[in-house]
């Protein structure tokens, strides 16, 4: 950014002696540094703001409901005449969604990534990769409608032996969320695997490894930190997914149940269906949204910390 650098070299005899001092104060450099610092700080401030805005109303909530009751209670009925604030039913709802989403997205996403990175020709990859990126951004409400209209009846038909009841199912919601995050998991894992140096693959081939052995025994282990990051991104999205769960699992009365064929609420579905226009600030129902939000935040945080530990433990460092 510095302009017109004039060498103040004083010539002495033959070649001019050139100054070693800075030609100017390099203001631009300082401005850039300040701007970059400000943007970095801004993102931290925003995050802090989110946490605080979650925590403040939660404090109001926990003045009326004990944390113990909140975390261990098994009935979630905040809007009832005789309210109860046990968060477990909607936590179990969220965990069920995450469980089914992982069941679908981790194997399928990883297999797709292995195909893309190790098997697909350049041309195929060039076609599929952008499609995946578009799929990642598909509006979840559309996917939710598709799942409710097509996927739910289909799965019911294929599994007549299961005790299906109403039109809603938390298990199908989990499967849908799993399908939803496959492109993300596949795409990020593919990036990680493709950044593994070709020389490692060659080394394995030269010892008589097959393509599949190269992928499983060399490339996946070498890319494991990136692959775990892909899983974490996917699971975070599964935890946070609201629209699909509202549409497919219904927003009905949550009951503590591990039955995936029943409809129930998740934490996000509760927030999404409760935070509507006719909720008034200052009520305990209002505050309960923030308590659930804060717990959601903590769960995501805990998972990220766990993932960082895993990455550190299993990472294969190459340079």
């Amino acid at each position: 950014m510095s302009t017109s650098v004039v060498s103040p070299g004083a010539s002495s005899g033959g070649a001019p002696i050139r100054s070693l001092e800075a030609p100017g104060p390099r203001i631009g450099e300082k401005i850039i540094k300040a701007v970059l610092w400000a943007t970095a700080t801004l993102s931290i401030l925003v995050t802090t703001g989110i946490v605080i805005s979650l925590l403040l109303p939660s404090i109001g909530f926990f003045q009326q409901v004990s944390i113990w009751e909140f975390l261990t209670g098994t009935i979630w009925a905040p809007a009832f005449a005789n309210p109860s604030y046990g968060v477990l039913p909607i936590v179990v709802g969220t965990l069920t969604v995450v469980f089914f989403a992982i069941l679908i997205a981790v194997p399928v996403g990883l297999a797709s990534a292995i195909y893309l990175s190790e098997y697909a020709s350049k041309r195929v990859r060039k076609t599929i990769k952008p499609i995946l990126e578009v799929l990642e951004g598909l509006p979840t409400v559309a996917i939710g409608l598709f799942a409710f209209n097509v996927l739910t009846p289909l799965i019911r038909e294929l599994t007549p032996f299961l005790p299906w009841t109403g039109p809603f199912s938390i298990g199908v919601a989990g499967i849908t969320v799993g399908l939803l995050i496959i492109p993300l998991v596949a795409s990020v894992s593919d990036d990680a695997m493709r950044s593994v140096p070709a020389s490692l693959r060659e080394g394995a081939y030269a010892m008589g490894a097959t393509k599949f052995e190269v992928a499983i025994k060399v490339v996946v282990p070498a890319a494991i930190s990136g692959i775990i990051a892909a899983f974490v991104l996917g699971i975070s999205r599964a935890i946070g997914e609201t629209m699909v769960v509202l549409l497919v699992a219904g927003a009905g009365n949550p009951v503590l149940s591990f039955d995936p064929t029943k409809g129930t609420q998740t934490m996000t579905a509760y927030i999404g269906s409760t935070a509507t226009g006719d909720i008034s600030q200052g009520t305990i129902t209002y505050d309960s949204i923030f308590a659930v939000g804060a717990l959601l935040f903590l769960m995501t945080l805990a998972m990220n910390v766990l993932a960082m530990r895993l990455v550190k433990k299993y990472r294969e460092v190459y340079d």
């Binding site: 490692l200 060659e202 030269a206 060399v218 282990p221 460092v317």
Partner: peptide, 11 residues
């Protein structure tokens, strides 16, 4: 078997 120009041990 083969040994390459740049050492390429697995990580």
């Amino acid at each position: 078997g083969m040994v390459f120009q740049k050492p390429n041990p697995f990580p």
